[in-house]
Write a protein that binds this DNA or RNA. Structure first.
Lengths: 217, 217
DNA sequence: TTTTAAAAAGAAACAGTGTTTCAATAAGAA
DNA sequence: TTCTTATTGAAACACTGTTTCTTTTTAAAA
């Protein structure tokens, strides 16, 4: 019985369908709409996320969504940020390794897994699934946060002198872009076979690590 | 005065706006529609290519386009194939170099230039600009043809033993995907600055060549 | 507590999309 | 010339993102 705080007994994730919450709980409705949109997206793909469909799932008029998000782009941005959180969480689940190379291999694997387990999010974030949405400053920053773990480990490797390149962001961008390229060509249907794509991916991870790390060991 | 062949004196690129050509010159109309779509796309971007707009430019009902292409996807495919031809031409304009490494550098530069000079085509071919279009067998083959020049030079390098990896397709895919990743992140707004993107690109080209070629020279 | 002004609801409409229908029309073969 | 087949071209359908507008509700002021 933890209904202690200011809000009356309303659980955002169970009770609050739209009409009961209304404007006094605008923030809760907002979160529920994002949740509804995410659910539709994950089940039917990003193209299935239409304002009307989200409104229907929320049993509310489309106007409510426009009041809270301004436009579809506004809702898309929230899904983008949600995806960034999920990616960050995926990286954080990778246990830190003493062997930096091994650690990077596993972070690379985590990135691949994310793209396969959350394909819709990946396409929204990096595949342009919502063509109306282009990442602005806040969204770009969220990607930076998600990649923080990778940036940190690369920076550490540079400080330890096992990576000769001085700019960690440059290294991260080179690695990120290369791996993204394979994932994106696969998701776009240019690489037909998943095993082929994964083999390319693993090979690319190895090549990249080999490129940036000193030759010995 | 070269109106010698079977067709009466009709120049596809000047005279034949839609109503005059009609079905007796269905193939000419077809080509004109592709041309009109391409013109709209290059001037206003892929999202501006709508059936109605193309039909308006051709002064014909939308039905004609559906009769000739079946769907918007059918028209998108033609633009895709058109782009493949342009990419192939871009590669062919690169003079063959005796130094294979140098040649690859210049082919890499040609790929970058193509993405910048024909951004709309690039987005249709590799960026999923027409979400309804996914490349099928014929389209994938057209990409292969466009990349033929690269495949050939890689194969030659393998035969000469200056690339140790045995599978030329693997090498081409790794290079292609990596470079595509950078271009795509740039076009998608994830890399804000063009100079940054180009620097990343050049560095990636160098890294890739260094990875696959024997260490000496 | 009553009045008043602002804000949100909720349906309906607008402008656009890809696509299909269907009468009127034209084309090529019999 | 007649007949059958295919094309025309406008209109409609089902969908999209978005906006308008009247009714209702809400929160603050008197």
């Amino acid at each position: 019985m933890n209904n202690s705080s200011k809000m009356p007994s309303i659980d955002a994730h169970t009770v609050t369908t739209y009409p009961k919450a209304k404007l006094q709980h605008a923030e809760i409705v907002r979160l529920n709409i994002i949740e509804a949109a995410a659910a539709i997206m994950q089940e039917f793909g990003p193209e299935a996320v239409t304002i009307r469909r989200v409104a229907q799932k929320m049993e509310c008029p489309t106007k409510v969504i426009y009041n809270l998000f301004g436009s579809k782009e506004g809702l898309a941005k929230e899904l983008f940020l949600e995806g960034c959180k999920l990616l960050a969480a995926s990286f954080q689940e990778v246990p830190e390794q003493v062997d930096i190379k091994q650690y990077l291999h596993e972070l690379g694997q985590a990135y691949w897994d994310f793209s396969q387990n959350y394909t819709s999010y990946y396409m929204v974030m990096f595949g342009g699934a919502f063509s109306e949405f282009k990442p602005e400053e806040e969204s770009l920053l969220a990607i930076g946060t998600a990649l923080q773990q990778v940036i940190t480990i690369i920076t550490k490797a540079i400080e330890q002198g096992i990576i000769t390149e001085k700019d960690p962001i440059l290294v991260v961008n080179l690695v990120w872009a290369s791996l993204h390229g394979i994932i994106h060509l696969y998701l776009g249907g240019h690489i037909i076979n998943k095993e082929t794509a994964k083999a390319l991916y693993d090979r690319s991870v190895s090549n990249l690590i080999h490129t940036f790390f000193r030759s010995d060991n």
